[in-house]
């Protein structure tokens, strides 16, 4: 056995010896004990070498227990949310309303009427507006809503939306509530819903209750909870079944990716934060992601996205490029 002619220095250089000195396992303990028993003349050298290896000690700052716990909490929080999301069934009895999401085009906006309230949000701003009729509207970033005058007393309550908003409509003696967008109008009696009018289309996602869509010359279409209707410029309506809470998570400043392609996530970031994202590898755009990421801090969000995509994030003039 070559170890039987080793000097102290040789032992100090031997990777297996060092490994045993630093992090012994039952196996390595057994090995070296056997070695010393069968090579008693080397026992002294082994002892000295052990002493030498352990002489090379480095100062280490012990992390504070608090810091470790806080770190674990924040990692675990993300890990939990990134697990395949298990959806709790909503308790419909509690929520006597519907939630709808719209994406509208920009063109119709010129049909302005007089004496109306207009609210506007900036990039990254989310704002909740209480209407006089008891309803509330949460306006997503860079969006605009016009509200008919004296809404509390109108037989037909009307608003015009550009951008994206989540509506919680109070029932009011059968008075209709209509959200106008470029492509359609959504009529509800009392409900919660979210409307988004970006990307030259209107997308309506209904979480609860019942709404009807009036687009172009089409007959009224009734939506059921979980329906997503996408209405393009041509007034064509496409239906899809979705998880409504994946489409209004912006209220809580996170994005539910749920198999959405990267392109859609990039659009949302551009729409809401004015940050343009480019991808050196354009095949990434089609990549589908799942899980949920916080967007409160857009830079942090992009860092996380770059981690998921395994790409470097490089700042450009008006945004970032994933490389």
């Amino acid at each position: 056995m070559r170890y039987s002619i080793f000097t102290v220095e040789d032992f100090c250089k031997d990777a297996d010896f060092i490994k045993w000195a630093v992090s012994p396992t039952p196996d390595s303990d057994r090995f070296w004990r056997t070695f010393m028993e069968s090579n008693p003349h080397k026992t002294e050298e082994v002892q000295l070498a052990l002493e030498c290896v352990r002489a090379i000690q480095f100062a280490e700052a012990e992390p504070a227990e608090d810091d470790l716990l806080a770190l674990k909490r924040r990692i675990w929080k993300d890990v939990e949310t990134i697990r395949p999301v298990v959806y709790r069934r909503l308790n419909w009895a509690y929520l006597a309303a519907a939630s709808v999401i719209f994406i509208l085009a920009a063109g119709f906006w010129l049909t302005l009427q007089k004496s109306q309230l207009t609210y506007r949000t900036a990039y990254g701003e989310v704002r909740e507006i209480k209407l006089d009729d008891g309803s509330s509207v949460t306006l997503n970033a860079r969006s605009e809503i016009r509200i008919t005058e004296d809404i509390a007393n109108k037989k037909v309550r009307e608003v015009w939306l550009l951008g994206e908003a989540y509506f919680k409509i109070a029932k009011r003696n059968g008075a209709k509530f209509i959200v106008h967008t470029a492509e359609t109008q959504v009529e509800v009696l009392g409900t919660t819903f979210n409307v988004n009018t970006r990307r030259k289309q209107t997308r309506v996602v209904l979480a609860e209750g019942k709404v009807q869509l009036l687009s172009g010359n089409n007959p009224a279409l009734v939506m059921k909870p979980g329906d997503m209707a996408t209405i393009g410029k041509d007034s064509q309506v496409r239906f899809k079944r979705v998880q409504p809470n994946h489409y209004d998570s912006w209220k809580e400043s996170y994005i539910v990716m749920d198999d959405k392609p990267v392109s859609e996530i990039a659009e949302a970031i551009e729409d809401n934060y004015g940050i343009r994202l480019q991808f050196q590898d354009s095949s990434l755009l089609a990549k589908r992601l799942s899980g949920k990421l916080a967007t409160k801090n857009p830079e942090q969000f992009l860092e996380n996205l770059s981690t998921i995509l395994e790409r470097d994030l490089i700042k450009t003039g008006d945004g970032y490029i994933f490389r």
């Binding site: 470790l68 990692i75 996380n304």
Partner: peptide, 27 residues
């Protein structure tokens, strides 16, 4: 953590990188 701290002497940075690292491993 100890190794990272010896390398950069910056708790915040070490924690952020550990956070990202374990998230990356998980995903």
């Amino acid at each position: 953590y100890r190794y990272g701290f010896n390398l950069v002497r910056n708790k915040q940075l070490v924690e952020d990188c550990l956070h990202e690292l374990f998230l990356h491993l998980h995903i």
